[in-house]
Design a protein around this nucleic acid. Structure first.
Lengths: 229, 229
DNA sequence: TTGCGGTTTTGCGCGTTCTGCTCACGGACC
DNA sequence: GGTCCGTGAGCAGAACGCGCAAAACCGCAA
């Protein structure tokens, strides 16, 4: 079990995040903190493996807190969870060794993906440490760093391109609250048929959600939305 | 140019590494250090972008040095260079935000690959920072973390020449607002196949940007444009 | 309640165009 | 004269748009 500390200045948001974490197999929530002071104390007392760290805290900036997390005997890993999307914060988080960075607000799917990637990383580390030879090969190290990036996307669907996939996914992600196939086609600049092909693929793989819109005459319209818990 | 500080307790090894770094286009060596104290001073004085950090230093362990590098005004990135292959060191280096970990002894090819990956990462960051909106998308952040893994592409510039690369790059740079593969081929005076080979390489390494042109029937055309606002 | 026509949307095969890969040719450097 | 590196030509297939048929709903009448 991966003990996780959830940090957010808004306790309702923290609760939602904690709920997400709990429903991912292999993860438990060992505490919830709403300030830098609470975070540091919780890390020292509960010894979490992972911290979901918000950056906007009332008493201190999250990235400064993060730097001090290294000073405890068993420093936790950190996934930054913030509405801050400026490059400076992202870059600094990376430099300080964050294993992930998700922008709020986000749905369950995104966090689930990151947590699973982190779980894979830990599993790989555990597998290496139990192997007879204590010496890791360069290829093992490379594999670990590659897991940091996360096997985020399925590399190559058949007959579909990565660029178009991103366009369609972003179109759905920015649509509020949902969007139809023709709207996606119009927004991206592709034909309806192509848009539908990609939407079906994304829905089948759980990246987006499908809802049927009834009411008017004719066949019900498929409306897509980004996956929320 | 990416200013690099090479750190190794053995000055001959440091010299070899410095030679490697210098021969990678885009990198310069701004200093060489053989101890923790020298490293810290050099970082403060020379402000390198990147540090090739050995772990076995006479006065202090490299990972402890690394932690203190964050405290300077412009903290550098770190690639760990060490004969230590134990999981604890590797794990801690990752947690502290190392962008790479190469085990000694290694050849030029390996270091070259890592440096190229790091250069791609910087280019990507620079491209994002010059884009009008300061707000990065989640997908952009994901891409940045994926570049940390680096194993995404084989950065072997094999079968390509430097002069042709410049020709293709300049052709894209002077095209407004974007240009197709056949147009590049026509403009430079090479075949379409060759132009495409170079364009793919440049796009993969973040020098130019790729956009798909939809609308007409048939496979969409790849249109390339230089990276900037 | 059930069946039928109308309507709108999805789903799929097909043709089209561009890409990416493979292989053979030509020049340069030994 | 052999070997290697970069290029050009040709071909399989990747990824799109078009158009039609089937699907799935609603309304209405029997």
């Amino acid at each position: 079990m991966i003990g996780t500390l959830v940090v957010d200045d808004d306790f309702r948001v923290a609760d939602v995040h904690a709920g997400y974490v709990k429903s991912v197999t292999g993860f438990t929530v060992v505490g919830v903190a709403q300030s830098a002071a609470q975070t540091l104390r919780a890390v020292q007392e509960r010894r979490p493996d992972l911290v979901l760290l918000d950056l906007y805290l009332p008493d201190e900036h999250g990235l400064d807190v993060m730097r001090r997390l290294d000073e405890v005997p068993t420093p936790p890993d950190v996934i930054v969870v913030s509405a801050a999307r400026d490059l400076a914060s992202i870059r600094r988080a990376m430099r300080q060794g964050a294993v992930g960075y998700v922008v709020k607000p986000f749905g369950f799917a995104l966090l689930n993906e990151r947590l699973c990637a982190y779980r894979d990383l830990r599993r790989r580390v555990a597998a290496l440490s139990t192997e007879g030879s204590q010496a890791a090969e360069q290829s093992d190290i490379d594999a670990l760093f590659a897991l940091l990036g996360g096997s985020t996307v399925a590399p190559a669907p058949k007959g579909q391109s990565e660029s178009t996939m991103r366009l369609v996914r972003d179109a759905v992600r920015h649509a509020a609250p949902d969007i139809s196939a023709v709207q996606v086609a119009d927004s991206v600049g592709i034909s309806r048929a192509t848009a539908q092909r990609y939407l079906v693929y994304l829905a089948r793989h759980g990246v987006i959600e499908l809802r049927l819109q009834y009411g008017s005459t004719g066949r019900p319209e498929h409306r897509y939305r980004p996956r929320r818990g």
